[in-house]
Amino acid sequence: MALLDYFLHKKDKPVTTASKAKERLQIIVAHERNNRKVQPDYLPDLTKDILAVLRKYIQVSDESLSINLDNKGGELNVLELNIELHDEQHPQT
């Protein structure tokens, strides 16, 4: 009965599916926008070369190296290299 529903459900406002949709979209869209920041053409090649150099000395997987070029505003650009090393791959001598 609609009248009864009206009184019963008025107080507790459940999270609507629309607000769930909005929240999920905001997260995924922000994530995807981050991924498509314009990166210079040479980055893939640079990544490949650095991996090759690293592999002369240590074992690394493709995923353990990440390279990012960040514009910190104005003239300042930062090239960020992140190499993840796992203990078993470089045992201490």
Partner: peptide, 17 residues
């Protein structure tokens, strides 16, 4: 459906895009 919370509102879509 927007009023009933079943559909993204104009403001929601504007916020996201």
């Amino acid at each position: 459906r927007v009023t009933e919370g079943e559909m993204l509102s104009v403001e929601d879509v504007e916020d996201i895009l």
